[in-house]
Design a protein around this nucleic acid. Sequence first.
DNA 1: CTTTAAATTTAGCTTTACCTAAAAATATTT
DNA 2: AAATATTTTTAGGTAAAGCTAAATTTAAAG
Lengths: 218, 218
Amino acid sequence: MTTLSEENYLKAIYHLGKQGTISVSTNAIAKKVDSKASSVTDMVKKLAEKELANYVRYQGVSLTEKGRLAAALVIRKHRLWEVFLVEKLHFSWDEVHDVAEQLEHVKSLKLVNELDAFLGFPTHDPHGDPIPDKDGNYSPMKSVNIFDIETGTTGVLSFVKDSTDAFLKYLNKNDLALGDTIKVLDYEPFDDSLTIETNSQKMVISKEVAQNLYVKQV
Amino acid sequence: MTTLSEENYLKAIYHLGKQGTISVSTNAIAKKVDSKASSVTDMVKKLAEKELANYVRYQGVSLTEKGRLAAALVIRKHRLWEVFLVEKLHFSWDEVHDVAEQLEHVKSLKLVNELDAFLGFPTHDPHGDPIPDKDGNYSPMKSVNIFDIETGTTGVLSFVKDSTDAFLKYLNKNDLALGDTIKVLDYEPFDDSLTIETNSQKMVISKEVAQNLYVKQV
DNA sequence: CTTTAAATTTAGCTTTACCTAAAAATATTT
DNA sequence: AAATATTTTTAGGTAAAGCTAAATTTAAAG
């Protein structure tokens, strides 16, 4: 069906362009898969031949529906194997990538789906990245209070409970806005404060603030 | 280190010639890996280059110590993955081969050894074939009465309890000798007789005979 | 709106792992 | 032991996936 190389290109295009929906450049792909632009051109023609990619000379590449599904399946496998390695085989999260990079190319629908079940249908890999389901979709995000996500994981600020002027001013002053990615670094039981990290800063927020912040994961 | 193709040739030589110790023919290898004799010649030269095989033109190939170890590692991985697939992922024993054939080439020492531990250090795969340890050795064989091995499995005749002249004559007459490979095909509860198969024949042995035959497995 | 710079593609070459067909070596028959 | 058959090797070729260097197209600058 698809070769190992093809799968790596599909993954690259998927990751570079919003799940393959937007067009990405030959050079960007070359950098991602660590090859040269000319090699990318060749491969991309092949992917177009197979109806996995949309390609117009000099205009970049995106994925077809078929290509997007194929890419999502590879990523699904990669992330499921990462969960397996960390949870069952005592790998640390920074050791898993190279091995998962090999395992993701093993072909067997039954294998992926049984592995998924064996692991209890995880929704995220050890890096916090979401795991696509068998149709390439991600489980719908739901907002949860920032207290309810695990330390070390990341969410996108999607809702604030308190919408008083005072609270919105606080957010502004502290450079927090809807859509920001927030990582919870630490929880302090003494006063229920949280240490969080955003794109711009690391900061401590009080219980009162945290109770009003809702994030989406997945 | 070794490519996927090289590993498949190493496996073939290992299996065809008593763990690679005896010389096997180009043609035999070609049949095993499903390629042509000329392709085998090429590959075998490459293996010799890498000091994985001993090769003399027109005289066949065997494995070096290094090659034997490499082959045993691939086989170890294959069989461990088979155990995993059957015991953890609900594969039936006849579904596992193709998938294990892919998984056996994943490179990571840590992966193999952690998988081994996760599975509880199994000594045999679901087909009853022994699993080499990390040094390529098999767990030492112990003699068991032929009644105590599973139907469908194979053992090497290693000991006879009764050494009277009458019994030895019986063995002789029936072309049974120490070192013979014996497969137990069926057990008949009515009279405790066994149907067995040797290199030369298929035969039924009585309870009295079976009680005196001891075989080594693994 | 030309000219220059950057990105992309084409053309032609390399390596790996195959293949076919012909040549050489070894085995088998008579 | 010569003749034939079989096996193995060599020679030369193919497809996949990469590369370099030159040519082409698009983008950016003056």
